[in-house]
């Protein structure tokens, strides 16, 4: 079985975001890069499928402007077999990213049976690539998946829907699955795994290799700025039990009469 996992490298969740002087993007010089957290569930699920289907290969695909190979090395250290890295100079929009991944999969010469992605990347939060890629490849997709069961080529997938409800999908491979937190518990890369990963194949491609150029850009971002700061609020001390009722009464009054939200 040919399994592909798409990973993205994103700033660590603790990162303090600072727009660049020309507001064209954010400062990236001192950022700690990590694998997109949702992609860890995608890698783990691919490894679980491979454990049950030993003739499988797991290929990691990453498209990105950041040169460090943190995300693909982590994925291979967790156990993926090989990686394709499509390098670019500028951040791409979702359409270009999906088209580049499609090109990379085609270049690999393997026909995908399963494609795993994270449900979203936590940097641009577009949630577009899974749907775009699935449509470009002509395969179905199920997003925000928290339960995965596979019986032969039939998959039963549970998708988180509104208000904590779940949609149960039945679908046959090939299919793209966008993974959510809760699907599994991603393993940590072991030291031997990290050593082995250094010897695993890593193919580097350019955008031209995968048939993507600036004419494919459909979304333009500009004017990056910090959200406006709120003026300081009012803070009341209610550690003392005798104060609690009056403080709470006061805040309720403010919510009703000043903020007018209840």
């Amino acid at each position: 079985m040919n399994i592909f996992v798409c990973v993205k490298q994103v700033p660590d969740t603790e990162t303090k975001v600072i727009p660049t002087g020309d507001k064209s993007y954010i400062e990236t010089s001192s950022i700690k890069w990590i694998m997109n957290p949702y992609d860890e569930y995608a890698v783990e699920q691919a490894l679980l499928v491979k454990a049950a289907n030993s003739d499988s290969t797991i290929t990691i695909v990453r498209v990105g402007a950041v040169k460090s190979t943190e995300a693909v090395r982590t994925a291979m250290a967790m156990g993926a077999d090989e990686s394709i890295l499509v390098q670019c100079d500028q951040p791409l929009d979702s359409y270009m990213t999906a088209k580049a991944i499609k090109g990379a999969i085609e270049k690999s010469g393997k026909t995908p049976d399963l494609i795993f992605t994270g449900k979203q990347a936590i940097d641009d939060d577009c949630l577009q690539v899974p749907g775009l890629l699935a449509h470009m490849l002509g395969i179905p997709s199920v997003s925000v998946v928290t339960v995965f069961e596979m019986n032969g080529d039939t998959l039963t997938l549970k998708k988180d829907s509104e208000g904590g409800s779940k949609e149960v999908y039945e679908v046959k491979a090939p299919v793209l699955i966008a993974c959510n937190k809760g699907l599994n518990t991603p393993r940590y890369a072991s030291l031997p795994g990290i050593m082995k990963a250094k010897k695993k194949p890593l193919t580097t491609l350019t955008l031209a290799d995968v048939g993507v150029d600036e004419n494919d850009r459909k979304v333009k971002y500009s004017d990056f700025q910090l959200p406006p700061e709120k003026p300081p609020g009012k803070k009341f001390d209610a550690m003392d039990e005798g104060e609690q009722a009056s403080v709470v009464g006061n805040v309720v009054g403010l919510l009703r009469n000043e903020a007018k939200v209840i």
């Binding site: 709120k230 300081p232 609020g233 009012k234 803070k235 009341f236 001390d237 209610a238 550690m239 039990e241 609690q244 009722a245 403080v247 709470v248 009464g249 805040v251 309720v252 403010l254 919510l255 009703r256 903020a259 209840i262």
Partner: peptide, 28 residues
């Protein structure tokens, strides 16, 4: 969290939340 709060209550949630609930019940 208090740097983002319009109204901050420094106190034990297990004490404050039930009082808040009762106060809100009175007006809603």
């Amino acid at each position: 969290i208090f740097t983002k709060a319009d109204y901050g209550i420094v106190g034990d949630l297990f004490k404050i939340v039930p009082i808040l609930n009762e106060e809100l019940k009175k007006i809603l």
